[in-house]
Write a protein that binds this DNA or RNA. Structure first.
Lengths: 247, 247
DNA sequence: AAAGCACCTGCGGGAACCCGCACATTTTTG
DNA sequence: CAAAAATGTGCGGGTTCCCGCAGGTGCTTT
């Protein structure tokens, strides 16, 4: 794999970060001859397709089309593509989003923009040459927390959390997820308890000053379980589902 | 004001952007002798205080303490400080946040990180030397939209929108804002209509598949009326209010 | 002064939500 | 395999929400 004609595609909308990445890549990978650059996910997909790029460095939050979307279509067409995600944040919403789309056995990485240049270079070599996964410690620990029991949400709970975040009614959720009304409400119960939404102000007699459903969404946002990108994506899916329901 | 001993304080957490700013500042302002740098709002406040900096370039979204907070305390101590906000986004939440804290008659600027170097340099000179305001066109148009009737929220509507976003009950809101229950609900009515939350899927018989209160929050997020920073701040204020309510 | 507008308030009802109590089914675990 | 979770469903009632109807105040317009 020590080939001399490696091509790398950089997908990053911030010009400063893009040029920084270019430097780092060419420093870390002398065998890399060509570097392509894209300013957003859309462009990234196109370039990946036309150049058959097998090595991609991808930002996660971009304007036109976010990194997760782009990565998914790239991987769908070519599952052995190696993608290094380079992100500002280790939010659960991002980490979950990434680990949901990575194909079986694909090499990928997830490093934060705040890591040192050394570690970035090392990650580049590990993934693109050694073909092994590299995930920043902070991200890894988030993954643990995500799938462990501590504040860990099952996939279906996460789904319903998104649904109430979108403002759907219990009844509509039950329809969409093919559950009974009561089941949906059971899920909500679990979600409320996991998010610990019942904290009444000290020892006051009124149980909770909160509208649980709305409160849950906000707490989830504050805890980085949800974020803007995830919302946007879910909203798009919802719109599509609703159109398909126009009997 | 063409003094030869100008000092500029840069507050920006991304090291790449910080060094970029440093270059731009020294290029645009040869009369600038000293440049101080801070990595977050906290540090920015401290440096501004100790150096009596009168010229600040400030990022808006930072980890430790965001730019709006920092700018407010700086302006509170020294209202004639000139601050150039340099931000990635032109969200209503940011624009509103900034224009709410700018002191009367103070010179300030708001330019996007995506603008050209020329315009950035021009803005630097305009604000720091000519003492006049410079606001990017995109931001300006957002301001118009914000305060005009189109999707324009009054201050109190915005307040209550935040309250339901935080998950508060109608009753608690009425208590906090010193209104009757019904008044709060009237406000909600206006909010719902302004956010156009009633869009039923095409011509279906069931009016709305949405829980209006939750839906309103999400729509507001998607329309950039709310964002994470604003939520975080409001949550902090809420916590404080709740402690003060422990009779 | 009358009319208009913006804001506040009370009442009441139908719908939606929160949730305890019970019980069937499936999956996991020791 | 049996015990223990996790997951799905029904019933019922107390609370909150959504909102139409019906007024009040105070300020601006004509």
């Amino acid at each position: 794999m020590k080939g001399a004609d490696m091509e790398v595609l950089i997908v990053e909308d911030d010009p400063l970060h893009r040029s920084f990445l270019r430097e780092q890549v060419s420093a870390a990978l002398p065998e890399c001859i060509t570097i392509y650059e894209a300013e957003n996910g859309q462009q990234g997909e196109t370039l990946a397709r036309s150049h058959r790029a097998a090595h991609v460095v991808m930002d996660l939050q971009m304007n036109a089309r976010n990194g997760i979307e782009a990565a998914r279509t790239i991987w769908r067409e070519r599952p052995d593509t190696r993608i290094l995600f380079w992100s500002n944040y280790a939010d659960e919403a991002y980490v979950r989003g990434v680990s949901r789309i990575v194909p079986n056995g694909a090499a990928y990485g997830y490093v934060l923009k705040s890591t040192s240049e050394e570690r970035l270079k090392l990650a580049l070599r590990s993934i693109f040459i050694e073909n092994q996964c590299v995930i920043d410690n902070e991200v890894r620990s988030m993954q643990q927390r995500s799938f462990a029991q501590t504040s860990g949400f099952s996939e279906s709970e996460y789904e319903i959390l998104m649904d109430i975040a979108l403002g759907m009614t219990d009844r509509v959720i039950s329809e969409r997820r093919h559950l009974s009304l009561r089941s949906v409400q059971n899920r909500l119960q679990q979600i409320y308890s996991k998010l610990d939404v019942h904290q009444a102000a000290d020892g006051l007699r009124d149980d909770s000053p909160f509208n649980l459903r709305a409160r849950a969404v906000t707490v989830a946002m504050l805890r980085k379980l949800l974020n803007y990108g995830a919302l946007e994506k879910a909203e798009a899916e919802l719109q599509q589902w609703m159109r398909g329901r126009a009997l």
